[in-house]
Design a protein around this nucleic acid. Structure first.
Lengths: 302, 302
DNA sequence: TCAAAAGTGTTGAGACTACACCCATGT
DNA sequence: ACATGGGTGTAGTCTCAACACTTTTGA
């Protein structure tokens, strides 16, 4: 019964599709860009202190124009017979060699002049990797991929009241460090409010040798990561299967950029983790129990 | 000093860009699809009762193959010299004739077979409109655009425990009504959990005369709207400039799909609204003060 | 007079903050 | 012994749900 409807030319849907000419107007290229985060231990000077941790992001050194020699997010073109998500997983796998890890779409960037070569629209995806599950560690062999420590700092805040609203601007300095290399740039986050209408714009103020508009993608991703850490369990994607509560707390602190009280923290995450029989040793202080992630009764989040 | 670096062919960035050939490989088309929501009063039988409200979504009746005769989200192609957001605002304006309204990007849909004509990647945007500010009301003149009442109902929930996780499926029936027309379809939301790795997939189970994969976009948008209503002030984009607290409460209830207690509600939103001198009259019961949206000291949300 | 809605007060449960305090270990 | 982190207890604040109750209007 369906599909027998005909259009103004008297064609059925089948006939229409058979004769359909997609036309030759100019189309944008579509790419995916991957924000692959992990957490890494940093050794301490004092034998008693725990190793500190840092949030890290994977970057690739560009070997071609444009932005040659600068650092960029891993990514690539979406081919014509591959879904957006497949493209993202393909890129992810080609960088990390792991398959089944957490990944989510963040945002699609569509400014006309994003790429000087041609019109490119790019979807950014965030992936979280537990460092201990990475066998081939990027940066070991080639010198064109490396994990960068991420620092995120609000350097200025302006607030201009307007009639019926305000304009608030926040400047955020993002610094990425890998050994001797230090990339640092500034993103402006501007919120314009008129009555209930809020509009948020992001702009690069200082690009700091980070390719294209990737600094904006990084800022967006960190913001999203911070948000999601507070109301989902994605953080456990950054943890090894066994961890101490202090380690978990440190990861929260690094992502949120603020210190937490241990007592309150323990109570808050108490029902997300399960104690195991194992514990740490040789730490120069009281050993701590190792925990693992415990699923809560089903939720169904996005 | 910058830009003087040369690549393997000895070209500077300027030279490279000048001679750059974008190639002729097949590119997907890119479109935007708009989810334009508003809230509408529905008259009551009883003179004493307040008018009830409904959440409405704007749909367009397709006059061409494919999906001829079915209803679809308004949208269109992104042209080569127009940003994604500009394309969305253009589509929004062409449907509503309003310019400065709330709009946000939701998600970009990139399955290969979304559109039977050719490969199309589509970004969905959500816009919220206060009904009273709509002058030209879609559906008045043409019969190809109409506001549909939205009903959202969870019809089934499955939960299958697996080793190290579970699979949870939720079937959601979405019914869209406009006068005699009733479109109803079912979307499956499946969450697969293995340890901390969560993967969410959406699938159309029953398409119900709604074009393409637009039913999924609608489900996603409602979910996002529900989420955002709880932790932002976007709901005021759906309200006229003056409103009673009961009206505001009804809009919350429609969006969240559950009833709220008036006492608690009033306290909760107390600092987001400001009393005015005006009040309702002739209502068949005690008049109520009219309120307006009051900005809180600046926040800077996304 | 009375149905319907507007609006206020009270109580108790639970979550989070802040701080104090004790415990266990390896050097 | 002691620095360092592991871990628990308690008191105060805040939010929110639940329910009871009073007030005000127009037909």
């Amino acid at each position: 019964m369906p599909k027998s409807i005909t259009d103004r030319q008297g064609l059925t849907e089948g006939q229409f599709l058979e004769s359909y000419d997609p036309g030759s107007y100019e189309r944008p290229s579509v790419t995916v860009d991957m924000l692959i985060f992990t957490v890494m231990n940093r050794e301490q000077d004092n034998y008693r202190k725990l190793p500190d941790k840092s949030l890290q992001l994977l970057l690739i050194k560009r070997g071609e124009h444009p932005c040659l020699g600068q650092w960029a997010l891993p990514g690539g073109f979406v081919s014509i017979n591959e879904s957006l998500e497949d493209a993202a997983r393909r890129e992810l796998f080609s960088e990390t060699n792991i398959d089944n890890i957490y990944m989510e779409q963040l945002f699609t960037w569509g400014a006309v002049e994003r790429d000087p070569r041609m019109r490119v629209i790019s979807s950014s995806y965030m992936a979280l990797v537990d460092r201990s599950s990475l066998r081939v560690q990027a940066g070991d062999d080639a010198d064109d991929a490396a994990w960068f420590d991420v620092a995120y700092e609000v350097v200025e805040e302006k607030h201009i009241p307007l009639e019926q609203g305000y304009e608030a601007e926040r400047l955020i300095r993002i610094t990425l460090r890998h050994g001797e290399i230090s990339l640092s740039g500034v993103v402006s986050l501007k919120e314009t409010v008129q009555g209930p209408v809020r509009k948020l714009t992001r702009e690069i103020i200082e690009r700091g040798e980070i390719a294209f508009d990737h600094l904006i993608m990084i800022q967006y991703a960190i913001e999203r990561l911070r948000g999601k850490v507070e109301y989902t369990d994605i953080i456990f994607n950054l943890m090894p299967s066994l961890f101490t509560l202090s380690e978990l707390q440190r990861v929260y602190e690094i992502i949120l950029g603020k210190e937490l009280l241990a007592a309150a923290f323990r109570r808050k995450i108490a029902d997300k983790v399960a104690e195991t029989d194992e514990s740490t040793r040789d730490a120069g202080h009281r050993p701590s129990k190792l925990y693992r992630y415990k699923l809560l009764p089903h939720q169904l989040h996005s």
